[in-house]
């Protein structure tokens, strides 16, 4: 395609200098947007998978000397009640040491923490195929065991999913905007090129060239400029994404799930230069056809 014959001297045009850099920037930004969306979606999916089969029961500790024993009692009652509820597979109370271990990333391991009135937790596994009426279960639990509440992970997970959806829409809007800016620039560059080469175009037209013969030459040029620009953008995006991935892996510390971009993400990002080139090509082609249709 790049070696096809051209009668128009498009190589030396000013657009050859600025168009690739614009496309490079656009592909770079698209790559970052695509990576952001895919990483977030992957994150949500993994959390969803980890969390959908579980919920947590919290028991408020009873203050005072005798509190400790009473709290233990309530934990046992609640766990028993949960185990008898149809659709619940298991209920495992965490002892104080385990609870502290869970909280360590936030509270540290100082001695004082041990004396805090921490709520006690029961880890409950739910049969995800069963239609469990969580509201009813929570009501019953609250009535039978004072100070017990159900903490359903799905509530905050659904907020997270909403956030991820919103981000997806924002990214799609960004991509559309990027596509629009790229097209508009190609239209402008093509019109400029056509007016610079008006004389040549007129001769080709008058000796019987079809519009597409002329349009194809602009389209080929736009394709090669778009593609080379896209490759520059890709060459800039890959180190950026790798660096971000590396940096997040360092701070993760096992508390965030891995933020690695999936292979499919790399494939999509790898296709961006081709998409940019095709977009440039079709835009140039349509622009030339539109302009030529005004000739006699």
């Amino acid at each position: 395609m790049l070696s096809r014959r051209s009668d128009l001297p498009l190589k030396g045009d000013a657009t050859s200098r600025f168009l690739p850099w614009l496309v490079a920037l656009m592909v770079y930004l698209s790559a970052i947007a695509v990576a952001g969306v895919l990483v977030l979606a992957g994150l949500v999916e993994r959390w969803d998978h980890d969390v959908s089969g579980t919920l947590t029961v919290q028991i408020q500790p009873v203050p005072g000397e005798a509190g400790e024993l009473l709290t233990e009692d309530r934990v046992r009652q609640a766990a028993e009640l949960m185990r008898r509820t149809p659709g619940i597979l298991a209920a495992r109370p965490l002892d104080k040491r385990q609870t502290l271990a869970l909280l360590e990333p936030w509270l540290g391991s100082a001695e004082v923490v041990k004396d805090l009135p921490l709520p006690r937790l029961i880890d409950v596994s739910v049969d995800s195929s069963a239609q469990l009426d969580l509201g009813a279960v929570a009501d019953r639990l609250g009535r039978m065991v004072p100070g017990a509440t159900i903490d359903d992970h799905r509530v905050w997970l659904s907020r997270l999913i909403n956030l991820s959806r919103t981000t997806e829409w924002v990214a799609i809007a960004i991509m559309l905007l990027i596509g629009f800016v790229t097209s508009a620039t190609v239209v402008y560059a093509t019109r400029t090129g056509m007016s610079v080469h008006r004389g040549v175009i007129e001769v080709l037209h008058l000796i019987g060239a079809h519009d597409d013969y002329i349009a194809r030459q602009f389209a080929d040029r736009a394709f090669s400029l778009g593609f080379s620009g896209g490759m520059i953008g890709l060459a800039m995006a890959v180190p950026t994404l790798t660096a971000i991935g590396w940096a997040t892996r360092r701070v993760e510390g096992g508390f965030l799930p891995s933020l690695a971009l999936p292979l499919s993400g790399w494939v999509v990002i790898g296709l961006l230069p081709v998409l940019a080139a095709l977009l440039s090509m079709y835009t140039a082609r349509l622009t030339v056809h539109g302009t030529l249709s005004r000739l006699p």
């Binding site: 009668d7 001769v203 080709l204 000796i207 019987g208």
Partner: peptide
Amino acid sequence: HLSTLDNVALPLRVR
């Protein structure tokens, strides 16, 4: 920007 040959070839090439 085209050689003599390419100038004269134009009508054939557009066909």
